[in-house]
Design a protein around this nucleic acid. Sequence first.
DNA 1: TCCAGCAGTGCTAACGTTAGCACAACGGCA
DNA 2: TGCCGTTGTGCTAACGTTAGCACTGCTGGA
Lengths: 343, 343
Amino acid sequence: MITTKDIAERLGLSVSTVGRALSDDSRISEETKFRVRQAASEMGYVGNRAARMMRGASSNVVALAIPDIRNSFYSTIAHELSKNMEAEGYQLMLSETDDDRMVELRHLRELSATRVAGVIIVPTARPHSDSVRLLRTMPHLQLLRRHPSLGSQWFGVDDREALRRATAHLLELGHTRIAYLGGPVELPTGADRLEGFRSALREGGLPDDAGRAELGPPSSVDHGRQAVRRLLEEPDAPTALVLGSIQLTLGVLEELSEQGVRVPGELSVVGFGDEPGFSWWGPGLTTIGLPIQEMATGCALWMMRRLKTEPSNDGPYTSVSPGSLVLRGSTAPPGGPVPSRPH
Amino acid sequence: MITTKDIAERLGLSVSTVGRALSDDSRISEETKFRVRQAASEMGYVGNRAARMMRGASSNVVALAIPDIRNSFYSTIAHELSKNMEAEGYQLMLSETDDDRMVELRHLRELSATRVAGVIIVPTARPHSDSVRLLRTMPHLQLLRRHPSLGSQWFGVDDREALRRATAHLLELGHTRIAYLGGPVELPTGADRLEGFRSALREGGLPDDAGRAELGPPSSVDHGRQAVRRLLEEPDAPTALVLGSIQLTLGVLEELSEQGVRVPGELSVVGFGDEPGFSWWGPGLTTIGLPIQEMATGCALWMMRRLKTEPSNDGPYTSVSPGSLVLRGSTAPPGGPVPSRPH
DNA sequence: TCCAGCAGTGCTAACGTTAGCACAACGGCA
DNA sequence: TGCCGTTGTGCTAACGTTAGCACTGCTGGA
């Protein structure tokens, strides 16, 4: 690797002069600057960031710690972050935790050793105490999920309200046997979504046991398939289903397609998220649309500002809207399809 | 940040001893090692990788440079890479090029400055000469697309064969007016896929102008919608359509759904890739399934081996199978649906 | 008794870059 | 002529870590 020393030797200058010429220091003559830049370019010089960091410069890397990049939820976030940060000269480190606290810890250890400038994290259900300790030593921002012992900086969706609205929509259509299928309550988002579902039922004046809630092990496509299969086999099967995760939604849709369940005739369905295929699934999936892009952009901008200015302006919690319910054909009054189909 | 010096001062030792204790040097007494480790843990010491790198250690970061992480093609690759590398203690840097050679160049400059251990890249159509120069200074591996002036290490799909098979399938069903909708020929993959389409037509004994090929600007969902709309409005509209990109496929499916085109009655369709929604689209989408996961794993293993051993064992090109055609309901003889539906 | 060998530790330099200070050469002004 | 400020450059130290070498006691054999 070419260093400033190599350039200095070739031009008969000192490393200081070369360094200053490359950083466009006003004390260096234009002629010298030109010669240095010329030589640097010819020799393919690329500054060593590790050495700069040792002189106190901070790294230009921000890490994104998420469960699984294949989840389009997270890939959208990664994309928005990357785009916004590239413009500012920052790089994105990707850490997949697989929702495993030990993997999360191993990643955070590495990130800490690399002295990343900041971390944007979707924490696991119960992060290891060392993870918490490590995170506290670096600028960090929680995304979607919020763990109490971490910093108060958080960006996310109003999960409770989102599920309340989705459930309320089904109640308005006249459903009284509604099931909810969501992720584990151990996750803050899982708990919030369940609570949104329950509060809608209460507001609708339904008895506590009217709504069935099936909460999962870590959300997965397979779990969605199995859960909906069990649900439909029960004697008093629900007439409507609300979902609380993208992965579960994907599984449920596949299973319903395969089994040929009539939607919304036999079952009304409200999905979670708005993936490419949701609009063309069966009669079109009514779903909870989330403002992922806005959230990710907000996240990126917050982090960029945080890294450029002093950490004094730490505001309180930040949250974005609960998104909006995207109405398509998969929801109707119980039993019958809608009298006059919309759209 | 805590350094070895801080630990040394607290214990009344020298930095050398502390450093050696932490790296489990055999010359240090067990008692000292214990005390050092204890103190390090208490004080929250995390080694500074930048300093280690200055002493010749290589970084533990491998970069993945891809057009867009939102494309599930690439997010699957990122996931597999991340998973395989985490096990070996490597981190993944994500660089989105947006298929823009200048963005690609900016990223490569940063990666070079960070002294990443290696780069796995899906190059843009015509990388900047500086990009080529930079890549040559680091261990790199081309993915999917292959640029001639870069190293010979490549992992990818047999695009030509994949499209040849897909087209042959339509020919076997009796179609004679087949359209191909793919990405720009400037991309090696675009050219290969088009060539596969054409060669199938030739083998089928069709005249050169039998197959219409519509090649796009950078593949996008919108372009897919518009292109298929134009195609169907033409006087001598094709009876079958083969697609050459995931994004285009998504756009085409949306448009066909909206317009209510009867598939496979009016039009037979073969998609590209196998996304979650493809199986439940209309009659089920016949599509070109790609062995993305295997490819990504192979890629990760190659890079890990390359970084651990001397770069002597550089084999020649590596390629994986062209995948397999997933037969579903969207293809049938021209005009009529299949007599006896499979499955 | 003397020295070799060993265990355990410290000193120092080096990695590449940058910032503070020093210094040389020069022109202008009193 | 002497002094000062300016311009352009060099010297040196520092960042945190590690590896080579040196040093100090101590044990054991000749």
